[in-house]
Simulated assay, not measured.
Amino acid sequence: MMKNNHMATQRIYNQQIYNPQFSAPEDVVKHMVAMQAQDYAGAKWAIALRTHNVSEDAIEQAITNGKILRTHLLRPTWHFISPQDIRWILALTAPRINAINAAMNKKFELTDHVFAKSNAVLVKALAGNKQLTRLELVNVFEQAGIASDELRFTLLLMKAELDQVICSGGRVGKQFTYALLDDRAPITPVLTQEEALAKLALGYFNSRGPATLHDFANWSGLTVTDAGIGLEQVKSQLISHVIEGRTYWMPNSMADTLSQKTKAYLLPAFDEFAIAYKDRDALINPQYLKQARHVIFDPAIVVDNQVVGTWKRTIKTKSVDVHLNLFGPLNKTQEKAVEAAVSQYRKFLFLK
Rank of each mutant, 00 (worst) to 15 (best):
W45Q: 04
Q38T: 03
R208F: 03
K30R: 13
H79S: 10
I47S: 02
L135D: 15
T212G: 02
I12E: 06
T310S: 10
G228T: 03
N331C: 07
L155S: 08
L132F: 05
R50L: 14
G173C: 08
N129H: 14
F141Y: 11
R87V: 10
W219M: 05
A147I: 12
Y248K: 05
W78A: 09
W219R: 00
Y40M: 09
G42C: 06
I284W: 04
R246F: 11
W78S: 07
R50T: 09
T257E: 07
V114C: 11
L238A: 02
T133A: 07
D85M: 06
F273A: 08
N325V: 11
R75F: 03
Y178C: 11
I187H: 09
Y265C: 00
V190R: 06
A196G: 11
H214S: 10
V33K: 02
R87C: 08
E195T: 02
A227N: 00
L122H: 10
A116F: 07
N19T: 15
E60M: 07
N129E: 11
N129A: 15
A255L: 07
N139L: 15
R171I: 13
L180Y: 01
P299Q: 08
N14Q: 08
L137C: 05
L73S: 02
F108M: 13
N252E: 12
I229R: 05
Y18W: 15
I239M: 14
K44S: 09
M104P: 14
L137I: 13
T93M: 06
Q36M: 06
Q143D: 09
Q16H: 14
F350D: 13
A8T: 05
F141E: 03
L238R: 04
L181K: 04
I146Y: 07
G203V: 02
A62C: 13
L137E: 04
I243H: 00
T188V: 08
P251S: 07
P251K: 14
S319C: 09
G309A: 05
S207Y: 02
G228N: 07
Y265N: 04
I239W: 02
R70Y: 08
V338P: 03
R96V: 04
L349I: 04
K261P: 03
E272H: 00
T192G: 04
V138C: 15
M2A: 10
T317A: 14
T64H: 13
L266P: 01
H79Q: 04
E244W: 03
V295W: 12
G66D: 06
K290Q: 15
H294M: 09
K107P: 02
N19Y: 10
E60N: 03
